[in-house]
Design a protein around this nucleic acid. Structure first.
Lengths: 348, 348
DNA sequence: TACAATTGTGCAAACGTTTGCACAATTGTA
DNA sequence: TACAATTGTGCAAACGTTTGCACAATTGTA
């Protein structure tokens, strides 16, 4: 027995009112008498009336739904960002539709189309690595659908974006290593055509320069940052430059690889070699020693992106100046880099 | 200049046809002439016509959207399940709306309401740990909205569900340890009021029984399975029952804790103590040694759940008999339990 | 040649809301 | 008392589709 869902006209019929009056009563319109509102609200409750969002959306031209496109949903980073997005969006009464591009530009374009057709009120987008043609975004812009990038943004465009200050992250991590007494700090760098990797490297280099430590090319190793890459990189570093007393890695996975080699060589962490990475992965606290890492403020990134988007939705996309929000990363110091504490202890 | 989106009536006007004919042409209706179809399709392409899903949904009473409620989206397990859900749903032309209950029964209920109001065509639900009152699901059933549980299901109800055979997982893991020559196999168990933990334990116990090994209470330790719990449990086990030569843990986090203690005591893994866990977490391949673990078939769980749901949507929820699909887990053998290989090697 | 079946198209209603406008009834003001 | 302003409600159109029914034109059949 499939029960007929109560609609506004059902309420109207039972109360001998017009649908317009019921609709206005439900939305607490000022021109509806208190008595009428009371009757409507009571019956609505009794019949468990739930407004048909689809109909309202069609009429109002707003669906109360936000679209999100991420490269992939598994993996810690985007899952946390999505969590942040969800939280704020739901608070503001918006539903969230999530799509994955799987790092594929064509899929990304299809996702966007789907979202546009579903009449979402705004789109949050983190570009796939394979996206090089941004033409299709014109469609979004032409339709005046608010759009905000997060994490992976298009630099040159006048679209709002929320990104992390990767430079600062690298800078902070390396300053910390220097403060802990390290002087021969190596870097496991990522592909330099990616902004984030370039910026982290720049932070590394500038932190050294700031402290009058020259950047030694023998201490820098670029790779794709797999764990295997980390192992190989560390092998190389230790053989080419045995004086190395710290490693700053562009990600945590490669750092784990490096850690394994350091341990295998019988070197102590952090006394002989201090380690710091980037991303604050879950496993950083599971290793021995626990790994120092730069936190990317994932949830905050999601929250901020939604807030920007909601602003655009409420004010109208034309009214709001495109803004680039740059989040400050947070260095989380753990065992793998805390030399000074150990030194003090040993002095006692 | 916000561009007016082309609608069916725009096409109709330009082609001197009625909207009904255009609508039928677009959906390739058999009664529309080939010539007309061609004209319609060409203009549709030219004007970049995209159907308004909202309007179609309203008229057809189907939104082509599926709702998903998970306890949380961060953490590997549900993220992968959601990935599986997304993949199949998108293939079938459905959008996906994702909500998090944050393990809170009240939030879960709100999520369901939201999805129902958004007129989703079906709901995939994994219950929050705090959900004890299932009354509110009646609403879903009364409205004949197809519903499928995944992972965390209500056992007693006649609702379709996709779950993992946790018993088999435990059984397989322990059989494997026995085959590797272990005879004093300990168990780090989880809260026994949870199905999954109870079943995994039962699998452990039965595997031992099957091989004529008595279950020794001194070798079983129950906890909440944090890493800290794993450490404490292992300490206890090693002191109370030093003969222990293997550990099967109900999750991987506790197993990492246990591993740390084993290493700290100077025992070799797997020669002195073999280790096997449950969940196949990402970090299992990052530890030294890499950890043997039972894979939960996350993506397949998501895919299967959607398939069940789509079946119900297409056949009508009444027609389809509720089914419980029990997925078989997959034991992934890694270094932490591969004793026999090492033995053979040492013999050579 | 006469009628039946098929082909191709259009009318109009419907899905469930929201909202501009109209208008009657009431209240307030000079 | 006469009119203006306010209050409370309803009519009807609109959002963009889909679809049952009708009907004219064409084709097929006996």
């Amino acid at each position: 027995m499939s029960i007929h869902r109560a609609s506004i006209s059902d309420l109207a019929a039972q109360l001998n009112l017009s649908v317009s009056t019921v609709s206005r009563a439900l939305s607490d319109h000022s021109r509806i008498s208190a008595a009428t509102k009371k009757r409507v609200w009571e019956l609505a409750k009794e019949l468990n009336y739930q407004p048909n969002q689809l109909a309202a959306a069609l009429r109002k031209g707003r669906s109360n739904t936000l679209g999100v496109v991420v490269p992939h949903i598994d993996g810690q980073f985007f899952a946390l960002v999505v969590k942040g997005i969800e939280t704020i969006a739901n608070q503001a009464g918006f539903n969230v539709m999530i799509c994955q591009s799987n790092e594929d530009a064509a899929q990304e374009q299809k996702n966007i189309e789907t979202l546009v057709n579903a009449q979402v009120d705004g789109i949050l987008l983190s570009l796939s690595l394979s996206t090089h043609d941004y033409q299709y975004l014109d469609d979004v812009r032409r339709r005046d659908i608010p759009l905000v990038f997060f994490d992976r943004a298009l630099e040159s465009t006048n679209v709002s974006a929320v990104v992390l200050d990767d430079y600062q992250g690298g800078y902070q991590a390396v300053c910390h290593l220097i403060e802990e007494g390290c002087r021969h700090i190596a870097h496991l760098g990522g592909p330099q055509h990616l902004n984030i990797c370039r910026n982290r490297y720049q932070g590394y280099a500038d932190a050294l320069a700031q402290h009058n430590i020259p950047v030694d090319p023998a201490l820098v190793h670029f790779s794709d940052l797999s764990m295997q890459d980390g192992r190989q990189g560390m092998e190389l570093l230790l053989s080419q430059a045995p004086q190395v007393d710290a490693v700053f890695s562009c990600n945590d996975l490669a750092l784990v690889g490096a850690m394994q080699i350091v341990k295998r060589r019988g070197l102590r962490i952090p006394q002989d070699v201090a380690l710091a990475g980037f991303s604050n992965e879950l496993f950083d606290s599971l290793t021995e020693p626990m790994l120092t890492s730069v936190d990317q403020r994932c949830e905050e990134m999601g929250r901020t992106a939604v807030q920007l988007l909601l602003e655009m939705i409420h004010e109208g996309p034309q009214k709001v100046q495109p803004r680039q929000v740059v989040l400050q990363p947070k260095l989380l110091v753990r065992e793998s880099s805390q030399r000074s504490v150990l030194l003090q202890e040993s002095k006692l």
